[in-house]
Nucleic acid binder design. Sequence first.
DNA 1: CGTTAGTTTGACCTGTATCAAAGCAGGTGG
DNA 2: CCACCTGCTTTGATACAGGTCAAACTAACG
Lengths: 234, 234
Amino acid sequence: MAETCSIPLASFEPIATKLSAFGALRNADVDVLGRGLTDLRAHAARDPVLLDGPGAVRVVSSGWVGMARILSDGRRQILQIAIAGDLVRMPPFSDGHAVALTTARTVDGHAVLQSVRRGETAALQRAWRLAEQEAERDLLSQITRLGAMTAYERTANLIVELLRRHVRAGLSDGRRMPWPVTQEVVSDILGLSIVHVNRVLQQLRRAGLIELRASALFVRDGARLAAAGLTDPV
Amino acid sequence: MAETCSIPLASFEPIATKLSAFGALRNADVDVLGRGLTDLRAHAARDPVLLDGPGAVRVVSSGWVGMARILSDGRRQILQIAIAGDLVRMPPFSDGHAVALTTARTVDGHAVLQSVRRGETAALQRAWRLAEQEAERDLLSQITRLGAMTAYERTANLIVELLRRHVRAGLSDGRRMPWPVTQEVVSDILGLSIVHVNRVLQQLRRAGLIELRASALFVRDGARLAAAGLTDPV
DNA sequence: CGTTAGTTTGACCTGTATCAAAGCAGGTGG
DNA sequence: CCACCTGCTTTGATACAGGTCAAACTAACG
């Protein structure tokens, strides 16, 4: 279950790092983040990330959180992944929900979103907008992956996207990133069966593109990985 | 090629109808639409819908327009469809573009978007926001379709979505709607081959769910069609 | 009418799913 | 410290959804 943690960790750091990557922030901007992000909660893997009302927003401070839909017969499609620094909103479906894909922590983003909307801090607002645009781009990429790519391409493409995002959040040097999810989760992101995800990951390893060890993914050949994913290298 | 048409048709009608469906509009609101929508252009099928700059917005007044991505080897994925009353933006990709899927007409939505953003007309703003939320929902539905549904389910689901949207725009009574696209276009929306789209449409016909005649789609059994598409009836 | 774009059909192939069972690793309790 | 879970990964065998190729059919249009 989600439990509130009273120790104020630097939970605003990932989002500050990410937004900085989109445009330099001043101390005042970072202060808005530091003060506005409250109500840190810890979530166990598979637990729902509860959002108080349809307008609520939470910011991930660690772990991966997914926005998912469940079909009546149990099929699950993960629509979008949020890593540290990303926003989580309630999916606008009766059968949609936000779920912790790993153990994760989130904070309430309500106050910060308000600040940004009011436009008090121009630099923050600008970076925020760019980050939102990137999130939308990634959402559209998910459509291209599922609709037009083979399993191998999809997988490589997803890895490159997540690598870029981890670099942006200061959580990767571009050669190594956290890989905290089970293959079942990957299968629900990519619209593949668990078994096939396993086989595709093996292919990527045998081709010398990646390596998986200790919940970390090592990129062995970024250029060829990007090519396999029909995208640009990070 | 897109050619400018000087005759001022009632190109704001579809969007006015659609927005009314999300919340009653007053005369002042409709006036904003009537005055703000300028620069009517006609597009032939397959022509790009050119957007002046990344922030530009056009509103479809007739026909279907798609936001698409082209992969390097020619594969095309249509990300989102805009029918009359819907907004078209430039996809945020170098390989993305807006394209007329049928002969279509669009108008410049720049001025109206500004008005709405400024929040001069509360009712319009509210309806606009709801329409945007619906567009986002439909975008997420596209992900679910492609990632978690069979060809048969995808096709039925898409038909129901388009039916709902046409009803909202005042272009369908819920039993019959325009079906102006080739099966190739449908295949690029649904991530299927042309041949398979053809076979699935035949299945839907043989099952007595739909009928296709003269560029129109007739819904013969809305309840079963919705069930086949794992969604709610219109 | 001939031409062209689109639809339909048939035969065949392959990518991915499914089913089942065997490894493997981390955690728990005896 | 071992033995046992339990959840995850891996492997193999088989099935099927959907892709590909090729050609026939149809209808709109000059």
